[in-house]
């Protein structure tokens, strides 16, 4: 990792729902191989931003440079093929499908997805399929889902689904992983497991951008945090620096936004 090597450069990005700019003139960058936390009160626009970065939402203003390429006009398929993997704010799984098959959806470049080969040339893909299955099993094992490999994903708890989503994202061998609230509604022990695994993934050189509210979690995983409020980036730096930043405190306490329900993170 070269110093100052940036994998993601967000430049003045904006998105409007109807006439309401949920994200506006938002700029920051993400160093390659880092874990960056995205924090901010509810409604700050974090999920909207993540959706734009995964290319599921249109970018109405500004540009996003990912790995040297302008990606603001890509579709989500293209982003995925260039190594962007994600989880969803509310976990999305194929509920009736076994966990391992769900995870295998994450794997890119599968030979057996070509119709002709799928039907007539089983030998061309059987080896790869077996290797991918083994890899998926190892990942699930590593994430504590060993006993659920063949269970339908609908039978998993909320926390287990998030772990499964992480396994699915890792199957894509991504360069950048976007995690939207990976610890929301997750038991503390599982939260700690997620934190540990996120660090290990980052140690392998994968860049991670994650939305979180839990300060303990962020303290363990995040190299730096970006704080958003009302669609803007209000602060950027280490967690300790940001949590004492006055603009951040006032954003969480809801100065000037009467009536809006704002959730303060623990420890602020």
């Amino acid at each position: 990792m070269a110093d100052g090597d940036v994998i993601l450069d967000v430049r003045g990005v904006g998105h409007a729902y109807g006439g309401f700019w949920a994200v506006r003139e938002c700029s920051f960058d993400v160093p390659r191989g880092s874990v960056t936390g995205l924090i901010g009160p509810n409604g700050a626009g974090k999920s909207t931003l993540v959706e734009m970065l995964s290319r599921s939402l249109e970018v109405h203003a500004g540009s996003i440079v990912y790995d040297g390429m302008e990606m603001q006009r890509w579709g989500p398929e293209r982003a995925a093929r260039h190594g962007v993997a994600r989880t969803f704010q509310t976990a999305r799984v194929l509920r009736r499908t076994p966990v391992i098959e769900n995870v295998l959806i994450g794997a890119q470049g599968q030979i057996g997805e070509q119709p002709w080969k799928a039907i007539f040339r089983r030998r061309a893909w059987a080896g790869q399929e077996e290797a991918l299955r083994r890899e998926a099993r190892e990942l699930l094992d590593w994430l504590g889902l060993r006993d659920h490999v063949d269970a339908p994903a609908g039978s998993l708890s909320g926390g287990q689904r998030r772990l499964m989503e992480i396994a699915r994202a890792l199957m894509a061998r991504p360069k950048l992983i976007l995690l939207d609230e990976p610890t929301a509604g997750v038991f503390p022990e599982m939260s700690r497991l997620i934190a540990q695994r996120v660090r290990e993934v980052a140690a392998d050189g994968v860049t991670i951008l994650l939305v979180a509210h839990n300060m303990d979690f962020l303290e363990t995983v995040a190299d730096e945090v970006v704080c958003m409020a009302q669609g803007h980036v209000v602060a950027r730096g280490t967690l300790d620096a940001v949590r004492t930043n006055e603009e951040v405190i006032s954003a969480y306490l809801g100065h000037g936004s009467s009536g809006a329900r704002r959730r303060a993170p623990e420890g602020v």
């Binding site: 579709g75 999305r92 959806i105 994450g106 890119q108 070509q114 799928a118 089983r122």
Partner: peptide, 23 residues
């Protein structure tokens, strides 16, 4: 086959398969 798996994925939830690179 993996092809069948992707088709089932598209059938059940296109958002997932699209987010993982399938058109």
């Amino acid at each position: 086959s993996p092809y069948g798996r992707v088709l089932r994925g598209i059938r059940e939830d296109e958002v997932i398969t699209t987010a993982f690179g399938r058109t």
